[in-house]
Computed example of a mutant assay.
Amino acid sequence: MTPEVDLIIEDERWRSLPLQSISQDAVGLALAVATIKVPVEVSLLATNDEGIAELNSRFRGKSKATNVLSWPAFELFASDPGGQPTREIPSDPFGLPAIGDIALAFETVMAESQSGGIRVEDHILHLVLHGSLHLLGYDHENEADATLMESLEVRALASRGIATPY
């Protein structure tokens, strides 16, 4: 089951990377570790620090750049801390269900990759995986939720031979 990623490139520097294939792999990994068996669509905005800072300010009240932001289309979050989110993704009569949007900031992603000694492709995979898990109802607002979400990320990354980022 290959998810569909609607890639919007706002900063041309992203074109030097295989962002489409990395992001499709990352969304697929998120679906697999979350045991979601329906194909979905995700929109990915490949922007820069200025663009993501504006989005971060508008939607989170934080006027600074960050590496990744996500906007879930559905309220799939668990009702109890550390609980599993709902696996009921509403169907769409017009195509794949669009589960939400993710944005990445070029300069921040590159700087984190370099400072952490991480292959940029592996870091992008992790960030899109992280954002996709948010779209599927996972969060890290409390310790129980963070433990669950991080365990899924670690398992998914290990399946690609990528060391834990935690």
Rank of each mutant, 00 (worst) to 15 (best):
G161S: 02
G61D: 01
L148H: 03
A30N: 05
S43A: 08
A26W: 01
H123E: 14
D139L: 09
E10Y: 04
K62R: 15
L19G: 13
Q24H: 12
A73Q: 10
E141R: 10
E88M: 14
A53M: 12
G161F: 00
L127T: 06
E4N: 13
P81I: 08
L45D: 14
Y138W: 13
A26R: 03
I36N: 01
I9P: 06
I124L: 06
L125Y: 00
E107R: 15
T35G: 03
A34E: 00
L7T: 12
E41R: 14
N48E: 03
R58C: 04
N142Q: 11
V27R: 12
T164W: 10
I89K: 00
D145S: 11
Y138L: 08
E75Q: 13
T108G: 08
H123R: 14
V68T: 11
P39S: 02
A146Y: 08
D101P: 02
L69S: 10
L133T: 00
I124R: 01
T66V: 10
F106A: 07
A30I: 03
A78S: 13
S16K: 08
V68R: 11
T66M: 07
K37D: 07
A78E: 06
N56K: 08
E143R: 15
S23G: 02
R119A: 14
W14H: 08
D49I: 04
D11I: 00
E50K: 12
N67E: 14
A105P: 13
Y166W: 12
A65V: 03
G117D: 07
A30S: 08
T86R: 14
E41D: 12
V33S: 04
R58E: 13
Y166F: 11
L19E: 11
L76S: 02
V40E: 05
G28H: 05
P3H: 06
I36K: 05
M110L: 15
I52C: 09
E143H: 14
A32G: 07
L96G: 02
D25E: 12
I162S: 04
A53H: 12
P3S: 09
F74K: 03
M149C: 10
Q114F: 15
M110D: 08
L55I: 05
H126G: 09
E150Y: 13
A30Y: 03
S63R: 15
E12V: 05
L55P: 15
E54I: 00
L135F: 04
M110N: 05
I118D: 10
S91L: 06
V33K: 06
Y166M: 12
Q20S: 10
S132L: 02
Q114N: 11
L96P: 09
A65S: 15
D139E: 15
H126Y: 09
T47L: 04
P3R: 06
L136Q: 06
G83D: 02
